[in-house]
Amino acid sequence: MNEFKSVDEILDFAIEAEQDAVEFYTKLADTATNPQMKAVFEEFAQEEMAHKARLLRIKETGLLESSREVVMDMKVADYIAHVHISPDMTYADALVVAMKKEKAAFKLYISLSERTPDPSIKSLFLSLAQEESKHKLRFELEYDEYVLREN
């Protein structure tokens, strides 16, 4: 892992990661066979773009509200096995992919925060991790609401 020298550098890294996610979902949208699933992936890509815009704004204004509220973790992403990414995947599969991606990002920022001795950079990483867990929660809630539905 390369060392981060400044706050800007870290934000650039995070912005790039969001951009990667946008591209990932756009690609899935292009390959999806079902028009409704195309729309779903486009929506996910939009969301990642919004995340990216948020980070850009933080970088420009230098403002980062460091609230310490704990984001609920339903751990749905933890116990579900990996799903196979394919052009004809279902919405439920897409939700699993999305929440796992957010979880991975969350883990990355947490581990980065543990490595850095600088307290201001540490708190920035923690804030980013919190952002990612919020994103994950959105997918987990959707999964909880609609996919895990007994009859």
Binding site: M72, M74, K75, L141
Partner: peptide, 14 residues
């Protein structure tokens, strides 16, 4: 069960 979210439902948390 966690705190109620915007929809008012309490989500199960491990």
């Amino acid at each position: 069960l966690g705190e109620p979210d915007e929809s008012g439902r309490r989500r199960p948390i491990p």
